[in-house]
Design a protein around this nucleic acid. Structure first.
Length: 144
DNA sequence: GCCAACGTTGGC
DNA sequence: GCCAACGTTGGC
């Protein structure tokens, strides 16, 4: 799961302990959120910053649920077209697990030989929530 | 349903 | 700040 550290970093998650991951407004990312289960492991990735890369680990704290910000006209992520009886957008609550000892940079991840098809390093990748296979997960964490 | 214009993401 | 990628919007 990507986040811009200037807005919400792994340190912020550490302070908050659990954070509702709201504001995702991309159908593909939403579908990945809907496929999540409580207890699933997540890697927290810092994007749009000086050193993009994996910064920490978390886990999903509960079942996916409607994102309340979609119904709040004052919220930047308000969606007037979302029907409260069938909410369009979903969030999960993410619990802090730990920071990585150092940021595993995008460069280092790209240099891994056996990632296979990985949405994070596809050209023009813009997905804010994307799946990581066991193989990818272990290969990345082995760089810590 | 096509496609140009526009907006956003995110690395550099 | 620039620009490539790509999703969304809206005119036709």
């Amino acid at each position: 799961m990507k986040t811009e550290p200037d807005t919400f970093s792994i340190d912020d998650l550490k302070t908050r302990k659990v954070e509702p991951w709201d504001g995702v407004r991309n159908y593909q990312a939403r579908n990945f959120i809907r496929a999540m289960n409580a207890g699933d492991a997540v890697m927290i990735y810092h994007s749009s910053c000086a050193v993009p890369g994996a910064a920490g680990l978390g886990k999903i704290a509960g079942a996916p649920r409607p994102d309340p910000t979609q119904f709040d006209p004052a919220n930047a992520h308000y969606d007037a077209g979302s029907d409260p009886s069938d909410p369009r957008w979903t969030l999960v609550d993410v619990r802090y697990v730990r920071k990585l000892r150092r940021v595993i940079t995008l460069d280092a991840i790209k240099a891994l030989p056996k990632l296979g098809d990985f949405a994070l390093i596809r050209r023009g990748n813009r997905l804010s929530v994307l799946p990581v296979t066991d193989t990818q997960w272990q290969a990345i964490l082995a760089l810590e």
